[in-house]
Design a protein around this nucleic acid. Structure first.
Lengths: 157, 157
DNA sequence: TTTAAAAATGGAAATCATTTTCATTAAGGA
DNA sequence: TCCTTAATGAAAATGATTTCCATTTTTAAA
C-alpha cells in the first residue's frame, strides 16, 4: 500500500476512536457511501442508497451520524437553498480535491468547479490569517458559492 | 438632494412597478425594516419589529415578500446553519457596503467583515468572468463565509 | 472471557420554519 | 368609479430535522 495513503478499509477508525466516538456499522456504511458519492447527498439520498442492503439503519441514525461527521470535520454540510441540507465528503489526507460551487437559482442545479481554485485558495489563506488575527477566530473551513442562472434557465427566462 | 441618490421615500417604487409587482403597505414596511436593520434578520425577527405598529401584516406576507425581494435582488437570503433563513438588505445604488461573513460554529454568532474585501472582490470578479464564460452561467451574486470558532467558543472548548 | 456502564440505535412522535389553501381585500389601469 | 387581478391573512398542511425512550451494541475493565 502506498505510503501516506490511510484510505482503505477503515482508515477513519482512528479518527472516530480518537475523539471518543464508537465505531458502528451504521457510521461505516454512511461514511462509505459519502466517500464514494460523486455529488452532494441529502440525508434521504443516503438513506435510499443504504437501505436496500442495510434496512436496519434508520434515517434518524443518518442525521445523527452526519452531525458527528460534521463535528469531526469529515463531512461538510451545505445549503443550496432548496430546503434540505446536502453533505459532501471532506477529502481525507490523500486527495485534496478542493472545489467551490456554482448554484443555479432557477433549477437548483449545482456545478462543482475546480478551475480558478488555486488563486482563490491562496487569497483565502491570506484572508483567513488576517481574520483569525483580527477577530481571534479559529477558522476551520470556508464556503464559496456563486449564484446565478445556468444556460438553460437563462434561455427560458 | 445629491445626484445619484435614489434613496429617500419610496425609491424602490419604480423597481417594484417596473417588474410588475404592486406596491403595498406590507412591502414598504418590510423593506423599510430591512434597510434600517444592522444585522441579518429572520422572517420572525421582521415580524416582531413590524407587528406592534402594523399588527395586520402577517408572517405569511413577510415570507412572501422576502421571496419577491430576493427575486428582485433587493435582499439576499442567507443560511448560517441554525435552521432558519436570514435576510440582509442588498445595498441600493448608493452605499455598496459590501461584506462577507465569519460564522462561529459554536454559538452561531456571525461577524460581518469588510476588511480584505477589496482584494477578494477583485479576484471574485475575475473568477466570475471565467466561470460565466466556461459554464455559460449568468452570475448574479456570491456568498463567502468562513467557519470556525469565535474567541469565547475557542476557550470553552 | 464475562460483565456492566455508557453510547448508539430505530421507530414513533414532536418540532418548527416555511408553504399552501382559500375566501377576502386592496391596487391601479381603464 | 369600476373591474380585473394581485396581494393578503388565518388556518391548515408540509416536510425536513429532532427528540423521546425503551432496547441493543460497543468497549473498557474485571
Amino acid at each position: 500500500m502506498p505510503r501516506g495513503n490511510c484510505r482503505g478499509q477503515g482508515w477513519w477508525h482512528g479518527k472516530f476512536r480518537g475523539c471518543g466516538y464508537r465505531l458502528t456499522l451504521g457510521r461505516e456504511v454512511i461514511l462509505d457511501v459519502l466517500s464514494k458519492a460523486e455529488g452532494h447527498l441529502s440525508a434521504e439520498d443516503i438513506y435510499m442508497k443504504i437501505h436496500p442492503r442495510y434496512p436496519n439503519v434508520g434515517l434518524t441514525t443518518i442525521y445523527r451520524t452526519l452531525d458527528v461527521l460534521s463535528d469531526l470535520g469529515m463531512v461538510f454540510k451545505l445549503d443550496f437553498g432548496d430546503g434540505r441540507a446536502r453533505y459532501e465528503f471532506a477529502e481525507g489526507p490523500k486527495g485534496a480535491h478542493h472545489h467551490h460551487h456554482l448554484v443555479c437559482t432557477g433549477c437548483n442545479k449545482v456545478i462543482d468547479y475546480t478551475d480558478f481554485i488555486d488563486d482563490e485558495v491562496e487569497l483565502l489563506n491570506q484572508t483567513e490569517k488576517g481574520l483569525s488575527k483580527k477577530y481571534n477566530f479559529k477558522i476551520t473551513n470556508h464556503l464559496i458559492q456563486f449564484y446565478g442562472l445556468c444556460e438553460k434557465c437563462s434561455e427560458k427566462k
